[in-house]
Computed example of a mutant assay.
Amino acid sequence: MIKFGLLWHKISLYASLLWHKISFCGIKFGLKLNISLLWKIWDYCNQATFNEVVYHQRTISSFLKVVFKEVDSNFAKLGTTNNSWFDYLILRRIGVETRAAPPPSMIEVHWWPPVGPWMKVNTDGSALGAPGSIAAGRVYRDHRGWVRGCFHFKRGLGFAFETELLAVIYVITIAHHKDWRHLWLEADLAYVVRLLNSHSLDIPWRFLASWKWTLRLLQDLRLQVSHIYREGNNVADLMVNRDCSEGWWPYALDEIKHAVALDMSTYSIIRIKY
């Protein structure tokens, strides 16, 4: 026989495991299955609390086995368990076949300088909320990795993608003004990369006029656009998060010198992708 405290602990344990097991499965089926499971748990607990009904452990285990096997039969290829020995022991105990999640993959991220006469600019933006206070930072570097200019600005309320878009407009305008005709723009936001590669006009209307003017400036430039992971965009990230006043500087600021030196070394960052 099994008492209420042990009953609740055992059912809660299995229910938690079941939630992890179907977390990668279909939403509709998972929601329906969890509602049925929670209703049954509630019924068991009420019977044990108010009607002093005692249940055999075999009864609880049989019910949970049926629920788990229903998950297995509907999602034989999609469902996975957590990679933990605790999950494995529970599933083996109730006779359910386990499927471990695939191991994470590792990607080496490194910043590479451009080939002369190209100028490479790394961009980053942030928004403290949605919408929130927005800020952006950009760093221009030549083929030797030397900083040729950097800037930081803050604006009012907005979204993160609007920050990136506004910064790209500034980047291209400055490059055109400095007569840097070969520009390699590297960003960690796929939205900006897609806009520049397609010359799309699918942007917020308040930026449309400035964006059209930017596309006209691009006719005088050779532009290359690429995506970089955030781990390799540390210099631009430091420019975004600086607390000092906004502006343009034709040299490397003290707070980014160390990150610039790391980029020019053989230092790499490992990105773990689950």
Rank of each mutant, 00 (worst) to 15 (best):
V96Y: 10
V96G: 06
V96C: 10
E97G: 01
T98R: 02
T98A: 05
T98K: 03
T98G: 01
T98D: 02
R99E: 08
R99T: 14
R99S: 13
A100W: 14
A100H: 09
A100Y: 11
A100K: 15
A101K: 13
A101M: 09
A101C: 12
P102K: 11
P102E: 11
P103C: 05
P103Y: 05
P103F: 07
P103T: 12
P103V: 09
P104V: 06
P104D: 03
P104C: 03
P104I: 02
S105K: 13
S105L: 07
S105D: 02
S105P: 00
S105M: 05
M106R: 13
M106P: 00
M106L: 09
M106S: 08
I107A: 03
I107H: 10
I107K: 13
I107F: 04
E108H: 14
V109N: 03
V109D: 04
V109Y: 02
V109H: 04
H110I: 15
H110W: 11
W111I: 12
W111D: 12
W112A: 12
W112E: 15
W112K: 15
P113V: 15
P113Q: 14
P113G: 09
P113E: 12
P114A: 06
P114F: 03
P114L: 06
P114T: 10
P114S: 07
V115T: 14
V115S: 10
V115R: 07
V115L: 11
V115F: 01
G116Y: 14
G116C: 12
P117M: 08
W118E: 08
W118L: 07
W118G: 02
M119D: 07
M119Q: 11
M119Y: 09
M119C: 06
M119L: 09
M119G: 02
M119F: 08
M119V: 14
K120S: 06
K120Q: 11
V121N: 05
V121Q: 03
V121I: 12
N122P: 10
N122H: 13
T123E: 08
T123G: 05
D124I: 09
D124Q: 05
D124C: 01
D124R: 02
D124E: 05
S126W: 01
S126F: 00
S126H: 00
A127F: 00
A127L: 03
A127C: 07
A127H: 04
A127D: 02
L128T: 02
L128C: 01
